[in-house]
Nucleic acid binder design. Structure first.
Lengths: 338, 338
DNA sequence: AACATCTTGTCAATCGATTGCAAAAAGTGT
DNA sequence: ACACTTTTTGCAATCGATTGACAAGATGTT
């Protein structure tokens, strides 16, 4: 491997001091060096292929321009979209060095959060965004929050007050129930994602509240999917068909679960919405592609991401920033499936 | 934010030198410190919540224990699975510090690769794995390869010799064509992903070669999807139906495209495989969930990932390692759709 | 011409961990 | 007790960029 050119060598070559180079290449201190010199240095540095060592810069500055992101499942389209959007937003800081994401996946395994947060802190991330928090993570996150800003997105934690940017899942669940009520359904059912995550708990809660208020019968035992995937959705339909009275509409806690239910129906020759109306959650690409498009709840990706980005940015610039956590309202998208 | 405990302070507190602490906590030099002292230091360090600063360590060592990963689309299940598997493999190095992935997405945009590789190099990654290479990236990758090992996975680049771990996409395409031939299809079609990526080019090539050899008519103009998504697949079906003679079987270059085609068929009341047989590629979860499960080509995720991991590991340990690029054969999975 | 002010650049300390070298301590053999 | 090897620990330089303090030079003011 080739030896790299460092600032000292470049300085020697250009006949100026390292300090001048550092300032010329920086964005905040560039005004301290004469325009002519600055340009010359920038050009020569580029021509020589000089690349500043960010590990050295991070050490000296105490800031790594790095943000740790914790996500439960990289296979989830919505999470990915939120991550993308947050960084698209954060990179729009004119003149500022760009922030590199450190992405880590917990798969909701008990010890993963602790281990990954540890890595983040050792790598001196400037902030941590968790899209993967569960109740069990509270102590770890609180401890981390003493060293760097910790922002919660998508998933909340009951009790603990972290700056957060969330979707009002309860309202989302309620919308679906209301929609079912308006369509005249009397017996309905939920296919619930793992209750480990507050997301699913709240969707269930909002749905049940409305059902209770409008005296819609919800199947006594809700169906829990061990993970929020289409395979689990498929199994859910079997459970549902055995029940009596049989539900005429089902709320799947996300679109993947809904797809599973739909395919299981197709397999049995059942049709939706005729035999069973169905609504999903997240408004993924999938929901639009289906021959009978899926009604679903549109996740406010843009809002949640932007606010999470703002929180992070402000908290990095000023750790005692008086943040405001926010809850964004999703919107029901009615398509042919319900 | 709380000030962090550094090694100097910890040393003071324990009444030993920083050097001793460094050695006690390391894995490779731990034998240089007396067992009793080592244990005491480890316990005290843990109790005091000491966390070594990896930016400092990286600077001094010239190794960051970080690997840059370039991926074209984080929404692609197969890519994610490969990334997961590579790191599961790399973390199995007993006694070695764990490697942190720096994941970046190019979305196949022209300038993204250059910019992201630059960031990687500035952050002093120990190696780069690209799952996103296109022909246009050759010069940038070659330049990067002079500073750190660069390994290609999934997507190859014609001409340039980088250590690589690939799927034999050509063989995959050929398998599908052979399968069609055996089922007696005379007129077939491909829905091809963007030819920017060698992956799709090779799938097309392998398929076409077999068609030619067995005198199967391939529709003169192949259908190109501008991106390999289900929406594009949906549009593809329209194009296909206008053709004459009409194909009786279609090879979609990945499962997402196949899903699009399937849903478009369902929309028009066509049935598969009766009206049109279909085979996808990648063996994603989706293909198994469908009511009529999708025939598909199983991507050798495990093999490709493991070999990519081995390449990286060996090249990091020894930059002049005589690597061997490999091509893994996928396997056709015949289900009800063809 | 004397003095204040502003610009531009240099010097040198600093961030925190790692490691070659050498000193101190402990162990071994006679 | 002595010479010796081996083990354990400490000292201090080092990685590369950043930045406060300061000096030299340029410009302006009266």
């Amino acid at each position: 491997m080739m030896a790299r050119l460092n600032m000292r060598e470049l300085a020697l070559k250009l006949g100026v001091d390292r300090a001048t180079i550092s300032r010329a290449l920086s964005s905040d201190k560039a005004h301290l060096v004469a325009p002519a010199t600055r340009e010359r240095i920038r050009q020569e540095a580029f021509a020589a292929g000089y690349r500043p060592d960010l590990t050295a810069a991070a050490l000296r500055r105490g800031r790594s321009n790095t943000i740790g992101i914790l996500v439960s499942d990289l296979g989830n389209e919505t999470f990915i979209e939120v991550i993308r959007t947050i960084f698209r937003y954060l990179d729009k800081r004119p003149g500022e060095a760009s922030l590199t994401p450190l992405i880590a996946e917990t798969l909701d395994q008990p010890d993963a959060t602790r281990r990954l947060i540890d890595t983040f802190l050792s790598r001196r991330v400037d902030a941590i965004i968790s899209l993967a928090s569960t109740e069990a993570d509270t102590p770890i996150l609180q401890q981390a929050a003493r060293e760097v800003p910790v922002v919660l997105a998508i998933r909340s934690i009951a009790g603990a007050v972290f700056p957060s940017s969330l979707c009002d899942d309860r309202a989302g669940g309620a919308m679906v129930a209301t929609h079912f009520a308006e369509r005249g359904h009397k017996v309905v059912c939920q296919v619930q994602g793992p209750p480990l995550s507050a997301t699913f708990k709240n969707r269930a809660l909002g749905f049940s509240e409305v059902c209770a208020a409008r005296s819609i019968v919800e199947m006594p035992q809700r169906i829990f999917a061990e993970n929020a995937t289409s395979a689990a959705g498929k199994r859910a339909l079997d459970a549902m068909l055995g029940m009596s009275p049989r539900p005429t509409a089902v709320f799947a806690h996300n679109d993947a679960l809904a797809l599973g239910v739909i395919e299981a129906m197709r397999h049995r020759g059942l049709r939706y919405p005729e035999d069973l109306a169905i609504v999903g959650f997240n408004n993924t690409h999938l929901s639009r592609v289906l021959a009978v498009p899926l009604s679903t709840v549109d996740y406010p990706v843009e809002d949640v991401s932007r606010h999470a980005g703002e929180l992070v940015r402000n908290l990095i610039d000023n750790p005692s920033y008086r943040f405001e956590s926010r809850l964004f309202v999703p919107s029901l998208i009615v398509r042919a499936s319900s």
